[in-house]
Design a protein around this nucleic acid. Structure first.
Lengths: 336, 336
DNA sequence: CTGAAAGCGCTTACAG
DNA sequence: CTGAAAGCGCTTACAG
């Protein structure tokens, strides 16, 4: 049984493909197709389970009803959760999601953007990295909505949905200080994007506002490319070599590595050092003791992203680019 | 700057689009295009960063270099990890992944399959549910490779990549019994697919082979549709209402709910009951005490899936459908 | 109220 | 060694 085309439906209904097309696309009234013809064609479409070929439609109209999602690593729990929420919201509007993981590799990301572009995607949701500015400009020149999230590229004028990381880290460190901590370490990545630096700045500001002095020996910057075992061992070294009473992690996966490190060196969270993680994770709540964390509002982030896309896609005039910053929530779980 | 088409390249190079097409598709030699022309055209393509429009190519050839991935929930850590591995392996062969979450809802799954079909996908990777048999047959009639994983629909003759769940659960229960446990509970879902029932059967067989008697009051079947809070509370009820010294969970997310339940009722893993989970999860290794688990070989599963797809796509004759079953690995982490 | 025809950007059988 | 032309399945401006 061959897949039916619009031609087959037109033949079955004894009308032209133009008429069928108008009916499929809800333009029957506007094009004043008679009710009888509409009924007849709709019946035939339903009986045969005809679905218009989206590839042909896409070639003709330039739209694909597909959104590209480019993140660091789709299996990272933060991105996986965002991906799911975005999928749900996009699905309800008739859009599908095609994804790829950049691994923070600019070459791979550029390649992916070209691949995406050659598929007529309607919009792009990207957690960007430095070095892909030209490719982003290309998409913007094409008038495709581009929404950055998680991270921003300030050189690029496009929409950004993010979280106030400065304040998130400031609040976390402030909580440590209120709790009497004095030797507060920051474990972060060496990725050079504003959103990572903001976390560092928030840490530094809170340290200084709290009357402590900034000690760069307490800040560990983990190279993105290294294996988890290397990361764990760097963290172990830091924790063993310095006097430390509190640790703030700046990402989800670093927190997990940190908890392993603490376990490996047979220390205990809270009795040896207080810990605050980043991005909530089931493992934090199940941990004994429970791990406090800075939580990003995933649902709201996904919602804003999709709304921005739909707004751009539906508006004739180019809407102004928007910057939407949500506050993170500090969840303190382990009262000392 | 408009996106260039094959026509523009042909004009720039002063050749026909046929020639450009042959060169793009690596058929230059076979079609005996002269070396000079090849060089010239390739130079122009490189200089202008021309990329063939995949939508047009897809319409013409019927291939899209896109694979559909249909799972229960892409944010579930097991599926997210599989999705990432599949992405990596597909990417290296030039394929992209479009995903959707079925939520174990047959209506949604059917709808998604129709949507996918209308996009000319080249292959389908599906964690199936009952009720979508007709749609799968439709894809198979189209001669599209369909790979089931995680679960199978035995009524359908297609490829399946899975794990020996019977043995996995049998081994887990056997380990409990060797450890002196006598009141062994099974917490599973009510989803009616063979792979879930196999887990139940493995449990039952090991109970009986171990000289214990099967007690249906120790088996809790959680409805898929209920909220996590309801699940946790059902598990709490079971654990409080019966004498139980060991618990086997049959899925990843149920294990997580179970650990929360145990925590809520202030019991402790190992001192109150031994626990074995399903599908490894970072939270298990970080838990105190560490949680033993049945581990599915994610890397191998992803690899097999992609290999099956590539094999079918590249072979002229219809290859025989394959059933690939991997053993699960029982990881015992908390010696009593 | 409805249809014939052009065209989206490719690939490929056919011709020379 | 290379090109003109048909056609994949749609949408839409134009004509009647």
């Amino acid at each position: 049984m061959k897949t039916l085309s619009i031609k087959d439906i037109a033949a079955l209904a004894n009308v032209s493909i133009t008429t069928v097309s108008f009916i499929i696309n809800g333009k029957a009234k506007e094009k004043s197709i008679s009710d009888g013809v509409i009924k007849k064609v709709e019946k035939i479409i339903a009986e045969n389970g005809y679905k218009p070929n989206q590839t042909a439609r896409s070639l003709r109209t330039g739209n694909s009803y597909t959104i590209g999602l480019l993140v660091e690593d789709i299996s990272n729990s933060f991105f996986a959760k965002v991906a799911r929420k975005i999928e749900d919201k996009a699905y309800s509007k008739g859009y599908k999601i095609i994804y790829s993981s950049t691994e923070n590799n600019a070459e791979k990301a550029k390649d992916l953007i070209h691949l995406f572009k050659s598929r007529n995607l309607d919009a792009y949701i990207i957690s960007p990295i430095n070095g892909i500015e030209k490719e982003i400009e290309m998409l913007l020149n094409d008038n495709k909505p581009v929404i950055f999230f998680d991270r921003n590229l300030p050189a690029i004028q496009t929409n950004y949905v993010g979280v106030d990381h400065f304040k998130a880290c400031y609040d976390a460190v402030e909580a440590f200080i209120k709790d009497g901590k004095r030797k507060i370490a920051l474990i972060t990545t060496d990725v050079k994007v504003d959103q990572i630096m903001e976390r560092h700045n928030g840490y530094e500001a809170a340290i200084s506002d709290g009357g402590l002095s900034y000690d760069e020996n307490l800040v560990l910057k983990i190279p993105f490319k290294q294996t988890e075992l290397q990361t764990i061992s760097s963290i172990e070294n830091l924790l063993l070599s310095r006097e430390i009473d509190a640790v703030l992690f700046s990402t989800n996966y670093l927190t997990l590595s940190g908890l392993r490190a603490i376990k490996n060196i047979k220390r205990t969270v809270n009795s040896d050092f207080t810990v605050i993680g980043y991005d909530d994770h089931v493992a934090f709540e199940l941990h004994s003791p429970e791990i406090s964390t800075v939580q990003q509002p995933i649902e709201e982030i996904a919602e804003s992203i999709i709304n921005l896309i739909l707004k751009e896609l539906s508006s004739k005039v180019k809407p102004k680019k928007e910057n939407i910053i949500f506050p993170a929530t500090l969840i303190l779980r382990s009262p000392n």
